[in-house]
């Protein structure tokens, strides 16, 4: 094992230029994937911020006793889809209207009687903010005897659904394409490293090295290059993110897990790319 590690590391020392080139190529290939990932992450976040505004409002019949409503709020909050249910009394509705609708302040001041109904504002948990679940919860709210009417932006929620599906499909297709391109480029780079050492491989075989012995340092070296490339790619992505954040708009960066996934992806491509290249080379000689 020590020998494998030594041989793998010596390659960086013996062929520093080619090694640096490999790492750079891997880094930039993964950087492209990373940039796309950043776009996806930010799109995802923007959509979920929009989705947070998905809300169902159940208007209550006038004169519904507070105790009844309080009981109902408990029931509703027990729905698996529901994040929170807030009781808005007639008075609070009016106060809110006065505060928010400044242009109608005069009209609202002169009212003799509060025309606004009390309501329940129901917010859904993150995974349930789509048209189907919203409809479902709205239907159940209508089942309460004291609920007069249930409103939510149906068109808006459906549009949001379509947007989400589109983003997921584009993300999958473009992301996969980028990943495939990265795999091909990285595979070619590793193949170059193998060809560069073909003479050495031939000599190793002549003196009785087994295929496994020849292969192992390459696999380790491929994995190390892939890992370094992945780290550099995350670094470049972070630099891009910092620039965008400073000059363009407020953006989000990868979570720790997502950044680790990029590095792991690089390591795996490096490992399996080397395995394929060396395997092919060994079968041919």
């Amino acid at each position: 094992m020590k020998l494998v590690l030594r041989e793998a590391l010596l390659t960086f020392q013996r062929a520093p230029l080619l090694s640096a080139l490999s790492v750079t190529t891997i880094a930039f290939s993964l950087f492209v994937v990373g940039l796309f990932g950043l776009v996806a992450v930010n799109l995802q976040q923007a959509l979920s911020e929009v989705a947070e505004r998905v809300e169902i409002v159940a208007y209550l019949l006038p004169g519904t006793p507070v105790e009844t409503v309080t009981m109902a709020v408990k029931d509703i909050e027990a729905f698996p889809e529901v994040q929170s249910a807030t009781y808005v009394t007639e008075d609070r509705a009016l106060a809110r209207a006065r505060a928010e609708l400044v242009e109608f302040r005069d009209v609202l001041q002169e009212l003799e009687r509060n025309p606004l109904p009390a309501s329940l504002e129901v917010k859904l948990k993150p995974g349930f903010r789509d048209a189907d679940h919203v409809n479902d919860v709205a239907d159940r709210l209508r089942g309460f005897g004291f609920v007069d009417d249930v409103r939510f932006g149906r068109d808006w929620v459906e549009k949001l659904d379509r947007l989400r599906q589109l983003a997921a499909a584009v993300g999958l297709v473009v992301g996969a394409a980028f990943a495939v391109v990265a795999i091909i480029i990285i595979g070619t780079t590793i193949r170059m490293a193998v060809l560069q050492r073909s003479r050495e491989i031939a000599i190793m075989r002549l003196v009785g090295a087994t295929d496994g012995f020849i292969r192992r340092p390459f696999l380790l070296q491929g994995a190390i290059k892939g890992m370094l490339g992945g780290l550099v790619a995350v670094g470049l992505s972070f630099a891009a993110y910092t620039l965008i954040n400073r000059w363009l708009f407020h953006a989000a960066f990868f979570s720790r897990e997502q950044a680790s996934a990029i590095v792991a992806f690089g390591t795996l491509i490096g490992f399996f790319g080397s395995s394929a290249s060396v395997g092919r080379h060994l079968r041919r000689v």
Binding site: I203, L206, V207, G208, A209, T210, F213
Partner: peptide, 27 residues
């Protein structure tokens, strides 16, 4: 043991490393 006209030594290793190499690959 195999010897060739063109020696087939590894250019980036010194003489003793070239020899040791043949032992190392055999474990």
């Amino acid at each position: 043991g195999i010897v060739f006209q063109d020696f087939r030594l590894l250019e980036d290793r010194i003489a003793e490393e070239n020899v040791a190499f043949a032992l190392e690959v055999t474990g």
